[in-house]
Amino acid sequence: MAKVNVYVTLKPELLDAQGKVVKAALENLGYNGVQDARVGKFIEIVIADSGNIEKDVDEMCRKLLVNPNTEDYRFEIEKG
């Protein structure tokens, strides 16, 4: 078994409406030094160990987990 952590973020040039709200909410709590906040997604996948995990996960990202037009992604594999 291996655990894969996939991180998906909106491309940096795109306005992140949720991030804007989070930034304002942090400022409302008095954290005036907050320059920016962006919200992404974190997906944990547990997958049977094989030699193809990297290729398979990359394919999963492109087919479903990520919209490559608007999002960036990276993942790390923790082999159990």
Partner: peptide
């Protein structure tokens, strides 16, 4: 758009 049958994508409203 997600299926690539139309160009572009829809993102969360700028007003959130």
């Amino acid at each position: 758009c997600e299926a690539g049958l139309l160009p572009g994508d829809l993102l969360m409203n700028n007003t959130a």
